[in-house]
């Protein structure tokens, strides 16, 4: 039990990922490993390449250079070069993405139940009753009133939409989840609720997570480790508390000292 994780291979291994948009740099030479059950935060100001990096490692954008190795249930696969069917299968069974804008991650004209059930049905579940039961179960988990199961997300508040996105992604029990600014645009009390919910689910499901945010408080709460990005490069990385409590790079120091304390 003691050595439970340390002998495992990393879940995700990112090797020197670069992405160029023409001559402009999206991100440059980013490297890290993500272990099972670990949460990695990527912080930096807008335009620092956070989202580009996230899209590259989550299989949504092809990097210009570098490699992403994911150790799936069926063995290690090269996410940049794997055949598309395999890549997409892994993406919809073992991974999930929660988008900043719920409109990107939800089907707004499909009911909450249908949104949650989509992945189950995509993975071959052909039993309405079971789809429905699991959708109800997940609504409860993400603290949405079960009576809203047949309502469409456009009738939901922003916080509910984000929670619905989370349910939609987690229903297939993925191992790795990507989040792009999941809490921006939510007011503070709603943010806290969402973060706490995420924390609970991460522990309960032993999820690994990559979370992009410009909010350092969010990373303090959710991420074990941080990468600080600026101009497409990782200027600093390490344990979250170490980076935030003893920042080394001038930019990180500036970032940390700019946090408003209520």
């Amino acid at each position: 039990m003691c050595m439970k994780n340390s002998d495992d291979i990393p879940l995700l291994k990112v090797e020197s990922i670069s992405k160029y948009y023409g001559r402009r740099i999206g991100c440059l030479g980013i490297e890290f490993e993500l272990w099972p059950g670990e949460a990695l935060g990527i912080v930096g100001e807008s335009g620092s390449g956070k989202t580009t990096l996230l899209n590259c490692i989550s299989g949504q954008l092809e990097p210009s250079e570098g490699a992403v190795w994911y150790s799936s249930n069926g063995g290690v696969i090269d996410m940049c070069n794997a055949p598309e069917p395999q890549r997409r299968l892994v993406m919809r069974t073992e991974m999930g993405t929660v988008y900043q804008n719920p409109r990107d991650g939800l089907r707004m004209h499909v009911s909450a139940g249908g949104n949650i059930g989509e992945r189950l049905m995509a993975n071959g579940l052909r039993h309405y009753g079971q789809v429905r039961r699991r959708a109800l179960n997940w609504l409860e988990k993400v603290e949405i009133d079960q009576e809203r199961i047949d309502d469409t997300p456009d009738t939901f508040s922003g916080g509910m939409q984000q929670r619905l996105q989370i349910a939609r992604n987690l229903v297939t029990r993925p191992r790795l989840i990507f989040m792009d600014e999941p809490t921006s645009g939510l007011d503070v009390s709603v943010q806290a609720r969402l973060l706490d919910l995420l924390r609970g689910l991460v522990t309960e499901l032993d999820l690994s997570m990559v979370i992009v945010t410009h909010d350092l408080a969010v990373t303090r709460l959710l991420a074990h480790r941080l990468i600080v990005m600026r101009g497409g490069k990782a200027v600093e990385s390490g344990l979250t508390d170490q980076v935030l409590d003893d920042p080394q790079h001038p930019y990180t120091q500036l970032l940390v000292s700019s946090i408003l304390q209520p």
Binding site: E84, V110, G113, G114, G117, M121, N123, R126, R132, D150
Partner: peptide, 22 residues
């Protein structure tokens, strides 16, 4: 096109699911 190519038809069943729930 991609969904056809990869035989990803979960969304068809979402349509049927919506009918039954409604």
């Amino acid at each position: 096109l991609r969904m056809h190519a990869l035989k990803e038809y979960g969304i068809m069943f979402v349509k049927l699911y919506e009918d039954i729930s409604r």
